[in-house]
Amino acid sequence: MTDTDKTALVQVAGFPLALDRMYEGRTHMWVARVGTGDPSIARIGLDSVGVETNGTLAQLSLPEVGEQLTVGRPFGQLEAAKFVGPLVSPVSGTVVARNEAAAADPGLTERDPYGDGWLIEVALTDFGAWLDGLTGEPDEIVAWFEAEISDYRMKGVIAQ
């Protein structure tokens, strides 16, 4: 899968959410399998709330093709107007592509986080294990996403 399935896009408490992929809850990273080849390739990006809560993006630092990623470890950096933080990998594997367009214009990730604003593609180390820690059931994703938005609103991170 390389394009966002528009029919899988829903709105939750004012934010778009794609239900055709999996999510890592703490980091707001999404993971979507690309094609059916071997090794398995996963495309990775930030969901709309992950983008919004950082503020206006200024810079995305992405890894080079060939770099090894470990689940739970930083693979890059996001810098916004008043915030800087790591991009944390939801999977282990080897980087096979980076989104040069998003690196050049982080606004692309703001405008289309589930589509053209993807970050990197990774050849997964262990396809059997890559689902661990990710949420994939639509009902669970929506419930988690809604709770996150509520929490961020409470903290005053989302504009009102």
Binding site: L9, Q11, L17, E110, D112, P113, A159
Partner: peptide, 15 residues
């Protein structure tokens, strides 16, 4: 829980 189909668009600001 609110989940309704939309076109992909994102309102960044409350302005």
């Amino acid at each position: 829980m609110t989940a309704e189909p939309i076109v992909p668009a994102r309102a960044r600001t409350a302005l």
